[in-house]
Nucleic acid binder design. Structure first.
Length: 488
RNA sequence: GCCUCCAUAGCUCAGUUGGUUAGAGCAUCUGACUGUUAAUCAGAGGGUCCUAGGUUCAAGUCCUGGUGGAGGCGCCA
């Protein structure tokens, strides 16, 4: 029976496409979730959204006895299937609307229990309702931008003959050098097997040794790059740092290109290229969502003083596209900072005393937001404050590192040219007490056909922060994992 | 890990030097309205003032512990 009925039912049109149609008078079907309902004696209006676009479609319902009964079941959050006629709108807010002939309530939403209302909710409140926050304009817009950026990243690399490599998520290496790791085990934590000398007997664990979640795909990425020339990874990354900030997650996504025969200048070119490529992609494909997010940001900041407000979102993105990033050696940065007003007047919490100081985020922000007023790539840091695998400069003091610093976000990319010389790399590993047993395979690549190569890590959520104008990284990933927080 | 701040209706928030019956807007419900745009107008219901103690004649307000949340710093992407 159902089969017969379906044959004469009009196929669903997604709202994104329905709003572009001009064949007025056509029978259409739309399905979605109710954002608002408002009505008078003779006619009711339902704003329906199906996530295909930030925009809603207006459903017009002529009131009669049957419709009145049905409308009693329609509240914000309810799911509807609407059969009706595509009509040129009489109202001023939209070009097209659907005059309902039949509305099926697919799923009710009890207004006493449904927490979302057609009004502004705080981001903190929505974070506690993360399982429903896709239903809001802000979070659906972020989700669509996030998707577009995933797609753009793969596009960028594919167009340039990079190969995507799936580096392992579970790693046996416990010294990747990028942070605290989450341990992976199948051992019974209530009764952990011990060796004779009282230590945990990892021989009895799943892999026969201790295992962790990856903090970076870089080391494995390098192995691939030293055969395939140009590779990138784009995967989940796990850091067990007790970081409580608006820009750190315990589980986040990172893009890590690694390229043979690239020096640091090539590496910086690549970093600047990909950032500009994906920003351009967002402007070309996500304008509706960006405009909404721009308004949201301006609304959020309306109580701030004029000089504390952010640059308008779309203007900011276009500005970054138009400007070359500043490329500045660490030594120069120190000179600028030491001569800066806040340093001389001791306004910095950490006053720069001289060369060798680690730059605090207040210093990075000064360079990016006050001094240069555009993205800055800092290079050639002191070896002492950077990772073991970075290529040592001839001055014996600095390494070929680069950090790309963005306004508000801070470090969006961290990378370097890698040390390709076996002896220099080996002595760094020894000097830093990194166990050779976990690093021997990495060292092997420097024995056989070693070449200069470079790469970096781009924090995907930090990129989304920049693109959406959001200020808390917990709002640009669907289900954020942070210390003491593993809900949903 | 360190420092600072916050918790009042379903949501967002006000609540004076501690003082009588804790308020507003939105949401919900009822009614009005011939096309609204987070509709509007009139009315109604809705409170363990986070929690456990303490100070006081008297605590939403002051003090201490706990819980939950936010921001800054560090680590970094």
């Amino acid at each position: 029976m159902q089969v017969h009925l379906k044959a004469c039912v009009v196929k669903r049109t997604e709202i994104k496409y329905l709003l572009e149609r001009t064949d007025f008078g056509a029978d259409v079907n739309v399905k979605g979730w109710v954002r608002t309902k408002r009505g008078s004696k003779n006619v009711a209006f339902i704003a329906l959204n199906d996530g295909s676009t930030i925009k809603n479609v207006q459903i017009v319902v002529e009131i009669n006895e049957e419709a009145e009964k049905m409308l009693e079941r329609v509240h914000t959050g309810a799911a509807l299937s609407v059969d009706g006629v595509l009509t040129e709108s009489l109202g001023s807010g939209q070009k097209v609307e659907v005059h309902a002939k039949n509305i099926e309530v697919l799923g009710e939403a009890n207004p006493d229990e449904y927490p979302l209302q057609p009004k502004k909710h705080s981001l903190e409140f929505l974070r506690e309702k993360a399982y429903l926050r896709y239903r809001t304009s802000t979070f659906s817009a972020i989700a669509r931008v996030r998707h577009a950026m995933i797609f753009a990243v793969h596009n960028f690399f594919n167009e340039r003959n990079f190969y995507n490599i799936h580096t392992p998520i579970i790693t046996g290496s416990d010294a990747e050098g990028a942070g605290e790791m989450f341990q992976v085990t199948t051992l019974n934590m209530e009764n952990v097997p011990k060796t004779d000398d009282g230590k945990v007997d990892y021989k009895k664990d799943f892999f026969g040794k201790s295992a962790n979640l990856t903090v970076s795909g870089q080391l494995e990425g390098e192995l691939a790059a030293l055969a395939l020339s140009k590779i990138y990874t784009f995967g989940p990354t796990f850091r067990a740092e007790n970081s409580n900030t608006t820009r750190h997650l315990a589980e986040f996504w990172m893009i890590e290109p690694e390229v043979a025969f690239y020096d640091l200048d090539d590496n910086m070119d690549l970093a600047e290229d990909i950032l500009k490529y994906v920003i351009r992609y967002a402007l070309e494909h996500c304008m509706d969502d960006l405009q909404f997010l721009s308004k949201r940001q301006q609304d959020e900041e309306k109580n701030k003083k004029a000089d504390e407000r952010s640059m308008e979102l779309i203007e900011k993105l276009q500005f970054v596209l138009a400007e070359d990033f500043v490329r500045l050696p660490y030594t120069e940065a120190i000179r600028i900072l030491m001569n800066s007003k806040p340093n001389k007047k001791k306004r910095f919490q950490y006053v720069i005393e001289g060369w060798g100081a680690d730059l605090q985020s207040e210093h990075e922000r000064y360079l990016v937001e006050k001094h240069f007023k555009r993205p800055v790539i800092l290079t050639d840091y002191p070896a002492s404050i950077k990772a073991f695998y970075m290529k040592q400069n001839e001055d014996g003091k600095t390494v070929r590192a680069m950090d790309v610093l963005f306004p508000q976000i801070g470090e969006i990319i961290g990378g370097s040219q890698r040390e390709e010389d076996y002896d220099k790399l080996y002595s760094r590993i020894k000097a830093l007490d990194i166990p050779e047993s976990s690093m021997w395979w990495y060292l092997e690549t420097r024995k056989f056909g070693s070449v200069p190569h470079s790469g970096f890590g781009l924090g995907f959520e930090r990129l989304i922060l920049f693109l959406t104008g959001m200020t808390n990284i917990r709002d640009v990933i669907p289900f954020p994992r942070t210390p003491q927080n593993l809900e949903f």
